[in-house]
Design a protein around this nucleic acid. Sequence first.
DNA 1: GTAGGGTTAG
Length: 558
Amino acid sequence: MLKMMMRNIAAASFYCSSRRWRGMPCLHSNSTLVVFDNNYFAFFHSQPSKPIKSTRTQLDQPVRDSPKITNVEDAFNVIDRMLQMRPRPSVVRFTQILGQVAKLKHYSAVISLYNQMGVSRIGRDVCILTIVINCYCHLNQMGFSLSVLGKFFKLGLEPDVFTFTTLINGFLLENRVAEAAGIFNKMMKAGNCKPNVVTFRTLIRGFCMTGNNRAAIQLLRKMDEGACKPDVVCYSNIIDSLCKDTLVDDALNLFLEMMSKGIAPNVITYTSLIHGVCNLGEWKEATRLLNEMVSKNIFPDVFTFSVLVDTLCKEGMVVEAEGVVEMMIQRDIDPNTVTYTSLMDGYCLRGEIGKAQKVFELMLSKGLMVDVVSYSTLINGYCKCKNIDEAMMLLREMTCKGLVPDTITYSILVDGCCKVGKLGDAQKLFSEMQACGQLPNVQTYSILLDGLCKNRQLSRAIQLFGEMEAKKLDINIVIYNILIEGLYIAGKIESARDLFCGLSSKGLRPNISTAMVLIQTMVERGFSADASTMELIVNLLSKDEVDPALLPLIKKSL
DNA sequence: GTAGGGTTAG
């Protein structure tokens, strides 16, 4: 079926995809902003108001045919020259430059530029201030964003729908959904600044991000009631979220609903759906969707192809994935960092580290940016081949390049060290990551805990488990399985059984892994199943959850 | 002139 899918892709005709620009290191801000009290939404009122004096009514004509800013240095030079010009260029030109630098993701640079012009009239403009708020939002500095909002009131300016949508997005970037929804609700109630389609989209995305599909759909229904007409982006966001939650049928229903309303899907809508069905292994459906989109003159782009490359790689079909990459190049769709990283991972999964390394070098030779994920993928490949030295070299190399290894990078390395029995190095890395501000998560703990248990360092494992409890981490059944197994391996049968019997009191249910741990360790040690184990096995059997490969073992233990 | 959706690593 995958081959058929690939033939269909090959048969379609494509045009060139857009190229994406990746951010360079940002400058640091030394901005000083007005500290503002908490009543930053006092602005909202229920009746339309007379506009407070706004620079929007005093704008000069936009400057046409202005050169595009492609780097920060140019932006600083241009702004510097503009500030010295008499008469000074219009505020629109300043907005365009700041907007372009913000689009390049040089948020700190925008704030520095703003500080240069802040004392002049140019800095007292709704658009300019909104851009500054957006930059603070992207730098996760909501406090400063709200201070800039305070500046609006101090200057007698009226924040508009752009400003509040930006703030909603800022809160969402910090996972502060309730505060984002709070602004939205105030906008809905107020008469002077109603949410528009972008505001709706932003909050819909926020709900989706936190897995609250229901709230997102409710918002969509509110739009249907006439608040604002939903568009392809609103639908696509929810379709994507449903697909990520494997609720592909619901996503397809929403997709049909959207089309029945005359809202045309685009390449993003299709890519989300294809990703969703690929994740479920529904190749036939993926092919159908690919054919459907091409028949509508909607052509797969680098995202769509990357999904296909990743899916093929995860299925072990790396040769076919290479074929898709070749096809992309022939079609003038440049594979990007994500495409090649997926391919590298495919090779790593097959233990073909040499080929993964070659892909990595190809990325470098093509001038593609290698990021934390690319490095982590390659590090994982070396770890799986038990070449920890090379993996550690890559860790140092990425740090030298200014890349910051994250929790996943360290987790991969901790796992690699554990798997070759280097528990000392694993624990050093575990400390190093915390010293670097990368906090271990439940998965990192489970990796180290597993390493300690399997290497018979039970007392340290129990100590680590205590750390997790002290940190109030959400200890899941996987962690308990590791510890129960560790206790069994160490011959502490009673403690293992106590831990197992206490699971339900902690609101946890044993899963198939728990059963495997219990059965295997008991069989290995010649124990027969006790009442609680029997009960567990019977429950699992009745739910058809037992791996058939385990049945001989189960019989042996009964 | 400003806000804004889809692809990769444990």
